[in-house]
């Protein structure tokens, strides 16, 4: 590798000042599984690498006073996937983290690095889009919070400003009745980078929509789900759906039309229609890994699988929904 210096900053302000002073000559490091590949390939030639892992809180997963889950930017994929709170409440994220590369690599690769690298194929991203994560950054103007869908701005581009770095990923609390599914396609069944991926999430109620008074129509779902519903009235349960697509656009993408359609109709026909709407939301390109047409077709397949598996999880055992793989 091209020579560079390695610096461990003592505090946030020093880290930010080093990054600010260095421009593109200075790069932040977490697990290095993207950065070092790019240095070795000669794509970038940093003079200084700033290892942010030892800053306070960067490797911690904690529940905030407001009930949010705060994941330090330097938490590894294995650490996140194995954390009891993630497994119980945000199991969708555990599925996504567990799908990355190999066990060894997941001991180094971090969720923060995955997002900062901003590959459209970043596997943690569709799950974080579904969970409506908020990214926390520290920089010259202090702490800034950025919703995940504004954090990814293009292939390999994120919303961080000069001197800013990611410190944590904040997940809003989720209702106990919720479930998610992450499906990805690679060249091999497990361990390969995504050709295309889809994350699906559903939760009881409509947290944000209710305020706007949009949730008019009672949910129509298949029999299994309805009998498993909370039981106030036959069609009392309204699910909020979120679908996010990876590696089929310049950034990960939500599929709002598909989400709205599912909230109205999650019958088998409704699921098929929503899967089609998800495929229409994709903006794939042809590249060495697959054609745009294949990717679009597979978005529909993965969306359908994801929705069906979420319905099964919500229907089969409501008391442990979100708790068991």
């Amino acid at each position: 590798m091209q020579p560079f210096d390695y610096i461990v900053p003592h505090n946030f302000a020093e880290a930010s000042a080093l990054l600010m002073a260095g421009n593109d000559d200075t790069r932040p490091l977490l697990g290095g599984t993207d950065l070092l590949i790019r240095v070795r390939g000669g794509f970038i030639r940093p003079e200084r690498i700033i290892d942010l892992k030892q800053l306070p809180g960067m490797c911690d997963i904690v529940r905030s006073a407001e009930g949010w889950l705060v994941i330090g930017a330097a938490c590894t994929m294995n650490q996140v996937a194995g954390h009891p709170l993630v497994r119980q409440e945000y199991e969708l994220l555990a599925q996504a983290c567990e799908s990355v590369a190999s066990y060894q690599l997941r001991n180094r690769a971090t969720v923060g690095g995955n997002c900062c690298n901003a590959s459209p194929a970043a596997d943690s991203a569709p799950a974080l889009y579904c969970l409506e994560a908020v990214m926390e950054a520290y920089g010259p103007s202090g702490v800034r919070r950025i919703p995940i869908h504004e954090f990814f701005t293009g292939p390999r581009c994120n919303a961080l400003r000069p001197g800013e770095f990611l410190t944590g990923i904040h997940l809003p609390p989720v209702p106990s009745r919720s479930a998610g599914a992450f499906n990805k396609l690679g060249r091999t069944k497990i361990g390969d980078i995504s050709i295309v991926s889809v994350a699906v999430w559903a939760e009881a109620g409509s947290r944000k929509l209710e305020a706007g008074g949009q949730s008019k129509h009672p949910e129509r779902v298949d029999g299994a789900t309805r009998t498993a519903a909370d039981g106030q009235s036959k069609d009392a349960e309204r699910l909020t759906w979120r679908i996010a697509i990876g590696a089929a656009g310049p950034t990960p993408l939500r599929a709002p039309e598909a989400e709205a359609a599912l909230a109205e109709d999650a019958s088998p026909e409704g699921v098929a229609r929503a899967a089609q709407l998800a495929a229409e939301a994709a903006r794939p390109i042809d590249d060495i890994r697959a054609s745009a047409a294949y990717r679009r077709g597979m978005v529909a397949v993965l969306a359908r699988r994801g929705v069906n598996s979420v319905l099964a999880r919500l229907g089969a055992a409501p008391s442990v929904v979100g708790g068991q793989p």
């Binding site: 599984t33 070092l36 590369a101 060894q104 690599l105 001991n107 180094r108």
Partner: peptide
């Protein structure tokens, strides 16, 4: 490049690709 695993060692008890550790 983190692909083959031939460089795997235990670091604090956990396997890592030593080619990607500075």
């Amino acid at each position: 490049a983190g692909e083959c695993g031939a460089c795997t060692v235990l670091m604090n008890g956990e396997p890592v690709n030593s080619c990607l550790v500075l």
